[in-house]
């Protein structure tokens, strides 16, 4: 996306340790021997499929989408240049845009903290050294491989206001549950539950993070008399923070892609209470056939994701603990 985010993502992996400025491409090419030149040529040949894909399916479309965002186009005929009109309309008189942003952000504010807490709690449970824990790992990961549509349908039925499982159980303790997906107040929490069902996917990654924490840190903490909670708070959490950070960034991007669950369960309703941003783009592009408008919406979203990602990354020195920095 931007040089900055890609650098930050790549730095850890691709550093060759060399900081000195290297000669330019042409100069290096001229100074190469025939063998090196042959190797370089086959190198380009091997990565050619990716380069083609990058140009045809990513860079090209991105540029096209940017250009399209300044046009009006319903796919038949020619796009008509209208300058900033799409953007002006989006920002000044498009209540659906505001609504979809609100829905997406409200969902993010509920879902991301919940999935972090539940994911870590599940990982800690799965990290217990008891017999048969492998079986539990399998069972708890299982919901995350269920196709999105099937998972959504299951939950639409589980959350049925009258015949649903959840309201039946709530009824046992005297709580009258809402009619989840028909209730503008509750529908978004239904979507949260669908997503949360697949939390096993991130729990597995947290689990790997837990298993990477050296045992001697806990031993040291115990020698100092730390309780179980203190060990978690002062050893586990700091050591796990890089994984939490990674999951948060991935989760953020995922939140803005939320589509299938709301499309199948509610179609954005009731009263647009689950009109996710992605769903709104879909409606504009494929139902109203306003390709230019949808492109503008997509670029605004890309910008929002970029800004949030940069903010999260900027905040990371304050709470993410990288072992390597100490060395």
């Amino acid at each position: 996306m931007s040089a900055k985010t890609s650098m930050a993502a790549g730095e850890r992996i691709a550093t060759s340790g060399r900081r000195a400025r290297r000669p330019g491409f042409l100069r290096r090419w001229r100074e190469m021997g025939p063998m090196a030149r042959k190797e370089a040529l086959s190198g380009y040949f091997f990565i050619l499929p990716w380069i083609i894909g990058f140009i045809v399916f990513l860079a090209g479309p991105m540029l096209a989408s940017f250009a399209l965002s300044f046009t009006r186009w319903n796919i038949v005929g020619d796009p008509r240049w209208i300058g900033l009109e799409n953007y002006r309309q989006i920002f000044t008189r498009d209540p659906d845009f505001v609504q979809s942003l609100e829905v997406t952000f409200r969902y993010a504010l509920v879902f991301l903290p919940l999935s972090t807490v539940v994911g870590i709690a599940m990982a800690v449970a799965l990290n217990s050294r008891v017999r048969g824990v492998g079986l539990f790992r399998t069972l708890l990961y299982l919901p995350s491989v269920v196709p999105g549509v099937a998972a959504t349908l299951v939950w639409v039925w589980v959350l049925n206001g009258r015949y649903g499982l959840l309201n039946t159980i709530l009824g046992w303790v005297g709580i009258e549950g809402p009619n989840w997906f028909r209730d503008p107040q509750a529908a978004i929490y239904g979507i949260v539950m669908i997503s949360l069902w697949g939390v096993g996917g991130s729990a597995i990654i947290y689990l790997a993070g837990l298993q990477n924490i050296p045992e001697h840190l806990y031993e040291a903490a115990r020698v100092d008399g730390a309780s179980g909670w203190q060990q978690f708070r002062f050893v586990t959490l700091p050591m796990l923070s890089p994984v939490i950070f990674f999951q948060l960034v991935v989760g953020l991007i995922g939140v803005f892609q939320t589509f299938t669950s709301s499309f199948v369960a509610t179609g954005g309703g009731p009263l647009q209470s689950t009109l996710f941003y992605m769903l709104y783009i879909y409606e504009k592009a494929w139902q109203s056939l306003r390709m230019g408008y949808a492109s503008a919406l997509a670029w605004i979203l890309a910008l929002i994701i970029l800004i949030i990602t940069v903010l999260v990354m900027r905040s990371s020195p304050y709470w993410v603990h990288y072992e390597a920095e100490r060395k």
Binding site: M1, S2, A3, T5, S6, M7, A9, G10, I13, A14, S16, F25, R28, W29, A36, E39, A40, L41, S42, G43, Y44, F46, I47, W50, I51, F54, F57, L58, G60, P61, M62, A64, S65, L68, I253, F256, Q257, M278, I281, A285, W286, M291, A294, S295, L297, A298, W299, L301, A302, I305, T309
Partner: peptide, 29 residues
Amino acid sequence: LRFPGRNVLFLILLGTLMVPDQVTLVPQF
């Protein structure tokens, strides 16, 4: 394989992981 620009290209590849699908969805279609 060693070739000029390899690291830069690999960084670009990693950068594309961050590009949200929405941006390419409409023009690809």
